[in-house]
Design a binder for these strands. Sequence first.
DNA 1: TTTAAAATTACAATCGATTGCGTAAAATAT
DNA 2: ATATTTTACGCAATCGATTGTAATTTTAAA
Lengths: 345, 345
Amino acid sequence: MKKVKRTTIYDIAAKLGITASSVSRALNNSSQVNEKTKELIMKTADELNYKRNILASNLRKGQSKTIGVVVPRINQNFFSNVIAGIEEMTYQKGYNLIICQSGENHDKEIQCVNTLINQHVDCIIISVSADSYDYQHLQNVLDHGIELIQFDRVAEELETLKVINDNVQASFEAVSHLIEGGYKRIGLLEGPQNLSIFKQRKEGYLKALQLYNVPVIEELIVANAWTKELGAEGTRKLLNLPQPPDAIFASTSDFSALGVLEVANMMGIKVPSELGICGYANESFSEITSPSITTIDQFSVYMGNTVANLFFQETANTDTTAKPKIISIKPELIIRGSTLRNGKA
Amino acid sequence: MKKVKRTTIYDIAAKLGITASSVSRALNNSSQVNEKTKELIMKTADELNYKRNILASNLRKGQSKTIGVVVPRINQNFFSNVIAGIEEMTYQKGYNLIICQSGENHDKEIQCVNTLINQHVDCIIISVSADSYDYQHLQNVLDHGIELIQFDRVAEELETLKVINDNVQASFEAVSHLIEGGYKRIGLLEGPQNLSIFKQRKEGYLKALQLYNVPVIEELIVANAWTKELGAEGTRKLLNLPQPPDAIFASTSDFSALGVLEVANMMGIKVPSELGICGYANESFSEITSPSITTIDQFSVYMGNTVANLFFQETANTDTTAKPKIISIKPELIIRGSTLRNGKA
DNA sequence: TTTAAAATTACAATCGATTGCGTAAAATAT
DNA sequence: ATATTTTACGCAATCGATTGTAATTTTAAA
């Protein structure tokens, strides 16, 4: 591709025998320039196919009008939805989005964040990777005066803006639903407990058991079962216990719930009559398995909207004394076939 | 967020009593600067937490090291996979990705493209929206000397780099598979014919019928059935015909195939014995419906890799006489339960 | 018509990094 | 010790847009 000399405000100015500053002002619709010349400038800009060089503009203005997003995986339903939601809002405001994926890897996450700092983005939106153990790189973002917003998977100890799901409440409702449905021995597939979201989901599980006076049975809790395969493995272990569970809450994701379902099918265990299953995240497939899987919808696109709006509010807000906001979105329990036995809810 | 004055090469220079130019050269590892001072500069840069201002750098160098991507929807499996694939490659090379979604809307697509031109991106990667009718905006990209790569949904008349699927071949294989399985009246759910991908899929369908001497029956071809709902609607129409089809090729997507499956279930028509179903795109859910849906895998992540690599090759390539490359990826037919009757393939 | 006020436009510095060119200092050769 | 080549660094222009201030023109008031 040959490089084309692109027209600048100087080209326009030269053509009209005026100064670049007037051109700049005209293009920014300043009141300091005469209507007629303004029109003239606009017309010639158009004729010369002028496009403002954002690099120069932003350099001068000391901003980038760019927001960086770091997620574990772009092509994961939840995250791609959140990103879509962010994009909707930022696009309207003329902001650009730089997307990075950390691949659930701490080092790559650090790299991504540093790249974004280099880019002088105005804000970094991040959902930390599963194996992140320290948060020096995030502190570094703040030290550079860059707005930092965490969503979903957040480092709680860091005082930043956060948009989270009320995982405790959602899990509580899910497990309550199971108990009310008559399930008595409820297994839990839990995720890496260094991620607060998984800790919270466990908390909700325990809370529900406690409220209904259901004893907590340690052997029904399987650690680190957060993929379909690990979920299946954990399920096999659970169902082979002398006293197997009669329901499993796959708190990590619908993928692990799917693993549960497949193992149950393979072992000839009927869902939901002999085993209730509840997943998390309302992945599109959860609706079309048979039976369909009860799950929790996180309103992911809306979450993206919220994150973006939070940034815009914050930049508009000059009050620096305000504490960092935390917005909690209440997820919704979607009750489906996998937990509906005897036709009762 | 209070603005922090960020350290520049001048700060480093001042601290060391040297010139900014030396600092710049040192940071770029130029051989023109003494090893010792280079080390010293590096150390101070680190101490002062210096991050290069990419805006300034790129402005000076006349490049942006940024690639723009425009897709109809970010949160659609195929596209998010392609984007993930693009990101993998571009990240390695230190390029940034700006992602936009056109929302299947021609005007928004034009806006997106213009925004990216404004950004002075080095390359625009696009999959055009369904209702795009003219391509002036894409021509405009080329006129600005910006590399343009189209993928999947491409405007054929535009001479640009393209990465496509061999839709004809894939559809041909899918329909051949149906015919060989003994299906005799094969319905087609087709997509908007202004998109070449859908035209090609129809072409493959017709080609297979012709090869096997199966007559083409116009009433078995349903136009514009490219969502789950439209697919369901079309299916209802087809199955209520005096002579209904015994198989349906949902060439638009697995979503419409899912619509077919649901209607069949509702009408008590057995799949695959009474009705064969083939979808397109290998969405994750296609594997877990019952029966699972035969479909076509497009290697979407790989497609993203290919697109990105094509860009890097092209920029490395100084030969301007070469014709724009078109890379065709051969999709793979994934045979599953929905087309396997009597246990025969 | 003169003068003050208001509206336009020009000038020049600035944002931060890069780079061609020039020169001083150091290293090597004579 | 002097001449020549290298090496290392400084100077200053540049990328394109923005903006405070100064200069000029226009308009309105006296």
